[in-house]
Design a protein around this nucleic acid. Structure first.
Lengths: 117, 117
DNA sequence: CGGGATCCATACGGATACTG
DNA sequence: CAGTATCCGTATGGATCCCG
């Protein structure tokens, strides 16, 4: 397994890039939210709220806002009565799929490693 | 981009696996620590402490302990005077490299997406 | 319905001092 | 050197109520 980056500066840049990714994803509910929207393609606020066990509306609202700022989800207000709001992943949000799949695979391997001690 | 998993149960399992991964990695300093050890192959407590800008000994101690519990790092007490402690990645810890590389690449892409608005 | 505002308990995490 | 213990401010996040 190759570990050493070429030069120190390069290494620092890589660490920053990892942090950028983690900042976006490490919120307690972020990935669950993304996954929920992704699964249904389009999803309304209250639907996501019931999809995810234990989340409060305050948290959902906050996390969705951050995801929107990071251009991972798109928010659309529908002209209904009363108002409904639809969330969907952006093209950029969809690129997370690969990363999430990696996280799934590593998580499975990790569980084997820990449980099977 | 394919998004819908086959069945709901499968989906829940995937979510759990992602959470397992995130729980291990999402500590504020975890990846920096792993990266530091990985970079130098073997590394002592005080060296890691000075590698990572801003971390306190309390945090380093705590995070290292968690990494050890998760079998990502191996802790070795050396019989020196005074005592020194060496940390190195386990085989399992090394499997994180791929994941971290993915995080690096996505982070770079993400930064482009956000900055270049 | 989709949030925002408020209150409040708890967890997180920094600084410092101490120990084997 | 490699932590541990303590103190303490701050951030996190749940519960609840309110509003357009």
């Amino acid at each position: 397994m190759e570990c050493k980056p070429r030069i120190e500066k390069e290494h620092k840049k890589e660490m920053m890039a990892v942090q950028d990714s983690m900042d976006v994803l490490s919120g307690k509910w972020k990935i669950s939210i993304i996954s929920s929207i992704c699964y249904y393609n389009k999803r309304r606020f209250s639907d996501i709220l019931s999809d995810i066990d234990g989340i409060s509306n305050k948290m959902l609202s906050k996390e969705l806002k951050e995801l929107e700022i990071n251009k991972l989800v798109k928010r659309t207000v529908l002209d209904t009565q009363p108002v409904t709001v639809q969330y969907e992943l952006t093209a950029h949000g969809l690129t997370l799929k690969t990363l999430i799949n990696n996280l799934v695979e590593w998580g499975i391997q990790h569980r084997k490693e820990i449980v099977g001690n």
